[in-house]
Design a binder for these strands. Sequence first.
DNA 1: TATGAATGAGCCTTCATTCAT
DNA 2: AATGAATGAAGGCTCATTCAT
Lengths: 212, 212, 212, 212
Amino acid sequence: MSTPAIPRRLPRAVREQQMLDAAVRVFSRRGYHAASMDEIAEQAGISKPMVYAYLGAKEELFVACLHREGTRLMEAVARIVEPDLPVDEQLWRGLRAFFAFVGAHRDGWSVLYRQARGQEPFAAEVAAMRGRLVEIVAGLLGRAVEAVGHRAARPADLTAMAYALVGVAESLADWVVEHTDEDPEVTATRMMNFVWLGADDLLRGRSWRPVS
Amino acid sequence: MSTPAIPRRLPRAVREQQMLDAAVRVFSRRGYHAASMDEIAEQAGISKPMVYAYLGAKEELFVACLHREGTRLMEAVARIVEPDLPVDEQLWRGLRAFFAFVGAHRDGWSVLYRQARGQEPFAAEVAAMRGRLVEIVAGLLGRAVEAVGHRAARPADLTAMAYALVGVAESLADWVVEHTDEDPEVTATRMMNFVWLGADDLLRGRSWRPVS
Amino acid sequence: MSTPAIPRRLPRAVREQQMLDAAVRVFSRRGYHAASMDEIAEQAGISKPMVYAYLGAKEELFVACLHREGTRLMEAVARIVEPDLPVDEQLWRGLRAFFAFVGAHRDGWSVLYRQARGQEPFAAEVAAMRGRLVEIVAGLLGRAVEAVGHRAARPADLTAMAYALVGVAESLADWVVEHTDEDPEVTATRMMNFVWLGADDLLRGRSWRPVS
Amino acid sequence: MSTPAIPRRLPRAVREQQMLDAAVRVFSRRGYHAASMDEIAEQAGISKPMVYAYLGAKEELFVACLHREGTRLMEAVARIVEPDLPVDEQLWRGLRAFFAFVGAHRDGWSVLYRQARGQEPFAAEVAAMRGRLVEIVAGLLGRAVEAVGHRAARPADLTAMAYALVGVAESLADWVVEHTDEDPEVTATRMMNFVWLGADDLLRGRSWRPVS
DNA sequence: TATGAATGAGCCTTCATTCAT
DNA sequence: AATGAATGAAGGCTCATTCAT
């Protein structure tokens, strides 16, 4: 009888997700400071006091965005890692999931990687997250060293190598963002080729192949 | 005989450099929006109107910072590249210069890499700069392919590889910033090992050595 | 029983009128540039951000003042004109309304006539308004010419005459402002005497009389 | 031999006139507040401290403009008035001079009539000037009344009439500014027709003719 | 005489945040 | 639950004015 009215009263959980969606979108487009609470509220189709009531002040709101996107990313990757596989296989699976996530959640990635990294007081926390990730990767590499029976490398060397690896992934995330048509799996393969074989082999036409 | 009075009146060129120094410092610490013209002027030891008189509004000032730091970086690298050397040698020299620059100009690097990349309307220009750099590196890799006599790789593959390479450098720049004590030459060697040999070789204990 | 508290929260329409009242007052006293948004807000008994929220930036606010006062003036005059009356009768009625309005809305008149006329970018619009008024008066005079059966005057002559007429009204508006005690009807009669009979007749003691 | 260098050192009197020329031009275009001392100095082809040294602060400079232009106008009119002529003849001569002046010195007229009238603290002085002019005209009219032998009119009536007369002149000054091609003498005749004969006669095709 | 260098002060504007309904 | 109304605070920018050379 009546037109299907847009529901005015929604459960809190739903409203919160709407707000976070809007916030992530606006923060990613404008950056933390240039984003205004007005625009976020408007994009969420809700009034400003509601944003404050549900998610707190701007800083808390931004942190909530970081947490949601960071958690989603971590979970997407963690979901397919299987600790018993060989290291390169694990890396390859993780990267596939990572690039797929970035391709599907550009705004979220942008907030994490572009906006939060340079903006106090969030930079420190993002740096800490990244540091933990680097150590995980370094641990993975350490196990690989053991697997090939080589004498234990110095921790600093492994950490530096992990930095390099993470840097490649971040940079190829830009590649993914700019090449919408490329399958994330292809990008993951590109990366495996590069980091596993190295430029010298690569330039000679060799290539790494996934096992499966 | 009299104490050399601090000169209150300085020529324009000198003041401009003081202002840019201050601006780079403040922008790097606070980010574009959180940086206030007041603080920049104060750090420069001068009043705000002088900043506007010499370097224009905030946006122009930021662009001036980007240009100065970008140019300095490019020149530092360009100064020691010699096109006739083998590709890996060229890479190694360029990286040495790059990491040395980053270690010596952390604020400048931070402005370029951290602050400008996510902040409209500067992101586009920085992305363009980075794009040009990527193409230069891709060209370098192309010549390396020819040098080893391998069939020409597809351009997209080379570009993706260049993305990866640039990503490693950017990420190890963070390493440099966080490890003040490490000689940039060591960091450059780390990177050459990683990108030239690849993780597989590296983990087996092999390593790349500079020629000289 | 309790004192009727001054309402702090008022509907938008009410606040807007309060703001316009204050703005007209301040603009008329100080002029466009010397008027500060701070003073306007203070006079309106409200904080500055509300002014911006409801009426926009200074320029828009000034335009809103011009429009409100201009419209009020036009309506006050239009309300009593009756197109079927003889021309001098119409003029007389219009002038009565005009001088009454000026006497009752000095600030509004001042903003329109004193402040806006010399101030870019408003001068052009005020000039356009005045131009339309002049053409209306010229049209009126044209009909008067026909009524007395005289050959059609050249348009330029009628327009120049209308300029003169409008100038008299504007100048006598000053007279009204400076002679608070004089009934606007008297001023209107003065003007009719002057413009209808001319100085020569006037000086000889003749005078024009309203019909009614 | 050498290119005729622009003279750098000029006598004070010359420089002052250059500055006043520039100031009148800028004040007339921008209005008192929007005019900047920078622009005035630039237009005068001289540095700002010189303006301050010669003509003082902005307010004094504006007053100097008012005085120069006001004096020029008064002198232009006074030069051709001859007290022994009939009143209409005197009026006609004065108006010819007035409209000629306005046509030749638009900026000066604009500063006097447009800018200064609404701008404190100059408005009062301009109003006083105008008041003196009105009384002169009223005096003239008074003598005309005596000349025709009519009983003395009340002073207020004469003053109001003088207001009207002055208003016509001011309004037709706009006409002159907008109709560059019309000979000021023609405009003066238009005005005499209007104020001397009145609209009624005028509309019937009568017209006032200069004696000479 | 003439000017580049320099600044105190003030104004417009916006934003995060809260209150009263 | 939900929002229109309201503001303290701060930042960008400009200008009249002066000093030191």
